[in-house]
Structure formats: C-alpha cells, structure tokens
C-alpha cells in the first residue's frame, strides 16, 4: 500500500495504490487524519483508482474519514473505484454519505 497526499486549493487528495486491509488501514487513517487536522480542508478526495484489493477495512477507512471531515464541516468524495472495491462501496451504502466522482 502506498499513500500520496496532495493539496489543491483547500482540497486534500489522498491517492492510494495497492491493497487496503485492516493491517494498512490503520496507517492510512493516521496519516490522512494528521493531514486533515493540520490543513482543515474543505474537501477530501479519496482516489482508489490504483487500489488492487480492498476489504471492509477499506470501507471503515472511507466512513471514518467521512466522520473526520464532517467534524470540520467538509465533504468526502471517492473516485476511481473499480471491480470488487466498487461492489463493496455500493453494497454498504457508503455513497449515501460520500460523493462519487464520475470521470
């Protein structure tokens, strides 16, 4: 798993590549939350286009960041989910809380 954090006009982009499971979701959560606290962005974009595997821990990560951002009045957008990653987001109802960016 690899995480890149990019700032673009008060929006934080978290570009994740590789696999998201419980083991590395803990690391993701720490790094992204630290940046949210420091930057207090208006929006967080979670880019999952490079994610090759994700289980419900990834879902927990997305919903957890929804809560982090809701705490400072910001929104979360998810983009690039494909295959089973997208299936999990759809079936969980996560898109009722986070926006889906279609490209």
């Amino acid at each position: 798993m690899n995480l890149k954090l990019l700032e673009e006009e008060n929006v934080l982009h978290a570009v994740i590549t590789g696999e998201i499971d419980h083991h590395n979701a803990v690391v993701l959560r720490e790094k992204v939350d630290r940046q949210i606290a420091a930057m207090r962005p208006a929006g967080l974009v979670i880019d999952l286009s490079g994610v090759t595997f994700m289980d419900s821990s990834g879902l927990g990560f997305v919903m957890g960041r929804y809560r982090s951002m809701a705490g400072i009045g910001g929104q979360v957008t998810v983009k690039g989910a494909t295959g089973r990653v997208e299936t999990i987001l759809q079936m969980s109802g996560a898109y009722r809380y986070v926006k889906l960016l279609d490209e």
Binding site: A25, R29, D55, S56, S57, L59, G60, F61, M63, G64, I88, M91, S92
Partner: peptide, 10 residues
C-alpha cells in the same frame, strides 16, 4: 476501530 460491520455481509 473503524470496523464497518460489513464483514459477514461481504
């Protein structure tokens, strides 16, 4: 611990 509660459903 940010468990989504979706494990068994998945």
């Amino acid at each position: 611990e940010e468990r989504s509660g979706m494990g068994f459903s998945i």
